[in-house]
Amino acid sequence: MKGLAARRRRPLATVVLLLMALVVTGAAYAVAAPTFANASTTAAGDVQRGRDLFVASCASCHGAQATGTRAAPSLVGVGAAAVDFQVSTGRMPLANTAPQAPRKPTEFTQQDVADLSAYVASLGPGPAIPEDQYLNLKTDDESLAKGAELFRVNCAMCHNVVGAGGALTRGKYAPPLEGVTPKQMYEAMVTGPQSMPVFNDANLSPTDKQDVISYLKYLEEQPSPGGFSLGSLGPVSEALFAWAFGIVVLIGAAVWLTAKSS
């Protein structure tokens, strides 16, 4: 009766394997989807202290006068917004060479960032840290609709329609926008970090930018109406679910249905 015993074991093994696969995928997802906490209050910066910080942490690549070296560009004229964005999102200082600087928890305090920004801003005129009035989130339908449309036309091609991120060439990518503060979003638009183009005020006015940010934050706050969003990545994650889970569950049901009762 060895054959029968083996046959009886198999369906259970399938189910166990399936469960294991699910747990592993779930765990991997949980690990792969880190969250960042970022503060966005602006503090007045101290240029002198900023200079000291710069020399200690940034000068090795950007040069003692921030005029750039072979390893890194000049920071003269990039403005406070660029520094605030790059440092507060942890992109700078760059940890190691990669196709692009990844987002990571920052090593600096808010005051450090403000001082650094103030120092770099003092080197030459550039985009300033956005005013608070443009960082308030709007909630009226009209602004949200406007923001959504502008986001689709100007941003969704790289960042995906709900800001889930997307690929660029040769290992570069447009990062996911979840957890990015309104201030950082605004700064990214005016400074165009890394591969991202600049959206100056003639292209997207400050109010336009505010609408875009309001829309993104609205999406982030709302739960997914249909249930688990599967990362909002579109048909591919749905395909994965249909095959890795849907078909497996249905076949599991068929195995149970045809297995001989004990």
Binding site: R152, V153, H159, W243
Partner: peptide, 26 residues
């Protein structure tokens, strides 16, 4: 329990925008 084709995220069809990760069903 599981969301599929959340059409509201995509907005109405317009020939100039597009979303990253535009793929067909499996």
């Amino acid at each position: 329990f599981v969301s599929i084709n959340s059409v509201w995220n995509y907005g109405p069809y317009d020939p100039s925008p597009i979303s990253a990760g535009t793929q067909p069903d499996w």
